[in-house]
Design a protein around this nucleic acid. Structure first.
Lengths: 153, 153
DNA sequence: CTTGGAATGTCAACAAGGCTGACGTATTCT
DNA sequence: AGAATACGTCAGCCTTGTTGACATTCCAAG
C-alpha cells in the first residue's frame, strides 16, 4: 500500500508553495480554499460554499470576514432571495488567487509533464474514485467550467 | 486545472475513514501519522520521525507522549547511541494500526479497483513527481519493505 | 397574514495541533 | 575539556476546527 504514503507526501508538496504565499499575506489554507472556490464559482452563496468546504458556518465566517475586511472578497445581498449573500473576488482578490493558482499549478504541471498524459488520466481517475460521493457532486458541478480559469489546462 | 480540486476532494475522502476511528480513541491525524510511520519503520528514532513528518519536536513530542502513556508505543533507549530513543508499536498499537490501515486501504483499494491497474500506475507516477525532493527520499527509503505490511497490495 | 423554516451573522468558549523561544540533561564526537 | 547531538519539557501564541445559543431577515405555505 505505497499509495497511502504517496498521498501523504504528495499532499505536502501540493500545499507547500501556496502556503508560503499565504503566510506573506497573513492568511492560511482556509483562506486559500475560500478564495479558490469563490474564483471557480463566482457569485456563489455562503451555504453553497459551506457544503463544498464541509466546515461549520462559524469557521467559514471567520475566514470570510477577514477576506471581506481586507477587500479581497465582495459580499452582495441577493436580488431574488435577499437572505443570500453572493460572493465574488475583488480585483485584489483575483490577483491573489492568480498568484496562488500559478504557484500551485506550476508544481502540478511539472508533475504532469514528467509523468506523461496517460499517467495524468489515471491520476484523475483514481482521485475521482477516492472522493466521497457527495463531494463528487460538487466536483463534477465545478467541472462545467464557466470560462473563469485562465487556461491552465 | 481540475487536478487541484480533485486533490482537495480526494484527500478528504482519503482521511475520512481513519478519522472516525481515531476520534473513538481520542486521537487525531497527528497520532495516525506517528503510528503509521512507526509501523512502517519499527525501531526508528525520534529525529528520523521528525524529518519524515516535518513538524517540530515539541509537536511530535506531545503526540508521542500520549501514545506512550496509553501503551500504544514503546520507547527504548538506544544501545549503540544511548541518546537515541527507538520507537516501536506495542501489541495494542499494532492492533490500532491494523484497524486504521484496514479502513484506509479499503477505500483506496476500492478506488484502485474501479479505476483499473493502468490508472493506478499513473496515479502513483504523478504523486511521486509531485513530492518534494527531500520527502521523496523518505518515500523511496520506506519502499524497501521489511515485510511489515499485511499484503494489502 | 401568521408562522415555520431557511440563510446568514455573531458571541463565547474550547480543543487539536501547528509554531517559536528557552532551558536542561545525557551522551558522543573532536 | 569543550562543542555538538538527541531528546524532553515548560510556556505562550496562532489558526482552524468544534458546539451552543441567539438575532435578523426573508421566503413560502397554510
Amino acid at each position: 500500500m505505497k499509495g497511502i504514503e504517496a498521498m501523504f507526501f504528495a499532499y505536502r508538496g501540493f500545499t507547500q508553495d501556496p502556503d508560503r504565499i499565504l503566510a506573506q499575506h497573513g492568511y492560511g489554507r482556509a483562506h486559500h480554499r475560500a478564495i479558490h472556490f469563490i474564483h471557480r464559482w463566482p457569485g456563489t452563496t455562503v451555504s453553497n460554499l459551506l457544503s463544498i468546504l464541509g466546515v461549520t458556518k462559524q469557521s467559514l465566517n471567520r475566514v470570510l470576514r477577514a477576506l471581506i475586511e481586507d477587500g479581497m472578497v465582495e459580499s452582495a445581498k441577493g436580488t431574488v432571495d435577499k437572505r443570500e449573500r453572493h460572493l465574488t473576488l475583488t480585483e485584489a482578490g483575483s490577483a491573489l488567487e492568480a498568484e496562488l493558482s500559478e504557484a500551485q499549478s506550476a508544481r502540478v504541471q511539472a508533475a504532469y509533464a514528467s509523468a506523461g498524459p496517460e499517467a495524468v488520466a489515471g491520476f484523475e481517475l483514481v482521485l475521482e474514485a477516492m472522493m466521497d460521493r457527495d463531494l463528487f457532486g460538487h466536483y463534477t458541478r465545478l467541472g462545467d467550467d464557466r470560462g473563469t480559469d485562465r487556461g491552465e489546462t
